[in-house]
């Protein structure tokens, strides 16, 4: 009886797990399926789960409808610069908050957390006006500088640094390493997984970001891929969903690839951040 019960519980667990997985996978599957259909097929009712005949032409159409290479290049540049500058800012800041004692540290850290709590909707207008005055709109700077530091990253890394056993750090000091060396050769290697988490979350956020580049840029020269994909939508008329979905596939491929390579770190990142 007991065994039967536990079997039932396990079965129920498995079923609900499969259901949850299906719910999460389905949108991606639906993008893929529609990206292979003809336009007419995207509109039929009841909807077809699989295309009658897989059409790769939608991908070519998506590529030719926009300067894809330009958008992709911009996305890569912006994301690389954001990641690099975040690394340069976050690591020393987190180290200082974790290891130094100085006047006003509590206040400064509160400020960092405050930045974490302010929603973008509140900050984008002043930032936009500031960048307008600095004549930095329509540039990579307007897409990178506002994210050059990450409150979330500083917070997460500081917590991680503080969790590193004091013995290890003290051993380093006894061996005569400086703060800089301790940060570079002790802390960073030990915080690899936290750094990877921060980088992944940052990458996913900025790769997908539609709102910020839409506000800050007016020209194709610096615009990123999500804006290019959105341009395939039609204002009052018939949007070719099949082409739009093909473009979406191209957009999310790097994210999916990242996920397959680093799903363990992503899980960890989500645990660290308390499910963002």
């Amino acid at each position: 009886m007991k065994r039967l019960l536990s079997l039932a519980v396990r079965a129920a667990k498995a079923v609900s797990l499969v259901a949850v997985i299906a719910i999460f996978i389905f949108p991606f599957f639906w993008i893929l399926s529609n990206s292979l259909k003809t336009y007419e097929e995207t509109l039929v009712f009841p909807p077809r789960i699989l295309p009658a005949k897989a059409m790769l032409g939608n991908y070519l159409a998506a590529l030719s409808r926009m300067p894809f290479a330009r958008y992709l290049f911009n996305s890569l540049v912006v994301n690389a610069l954001v990641l690099a500058s975040q690394f340069l800012v976050i690591v020393p800041a987190a180290y200082a908050f974790a290891m130094y004692r100085f006047k006003g540290k509590g206040l400064l850290f509160t400020l960092v957390l405050f930045g974490f709590m302010l929603p973008q909707q509140l900050t984008f207008v002043p930032i936009y006006l500031l960048f307008g005055r600095l004549r930095l709109l329509n540039s990579y700077a307007s897409l990178v500088l506002p994210f050059a530091a990450s409150s979330f990253g500083i917070f997460l890394l500081r917590q991680y640094f503080m969790g590193i056993p004091a013995e290890i750090i003290e051993a380093g000091y006894l061996d005569g390493v400086s703060h800089r060396q301790s940060m570079m050769y002790i802390m960073i290697p030990m915080a690899k997984s936290a750094l990877a988490s921060i980088a992944l979350i940052s990458f996913i956020t900025h790769w997908n970001d539609y709102f910020w580049p839409l506000v800050m840029t007016n020209t194709v020269k610096v615009r990123t891929l999500p804006l290019g994909v959105a341009a395939l939508r039609v204002t009052d008329g018939t949007t070719e969903w099949n082409v739009l979905m093909a473009a979406n596939m191209l957009l999310i491929l790097p994210i999916i690839a990242t996920f397959f390579v680093a799903h363990r770190q992503i899980k960890e990142a989500l645990v660290h951040s308390g499910i963002k």
Partner: peptide, 26 residues
């Protein structure tokens, strides 16, 4: 002439409003 897509009608209007404030109008 350089033509740039700015989102739907209402996105474009919002962009013009913002551009007036930052002196970057088309």
């Amino acid at each position: 002439v350089t033509a740039t897509y700015q989102g739907n009608y209402y996105d474009t209007s919002a962009k013009i409003q913002a551009a007036v404030a930052s002196n970057t109008t088309p």
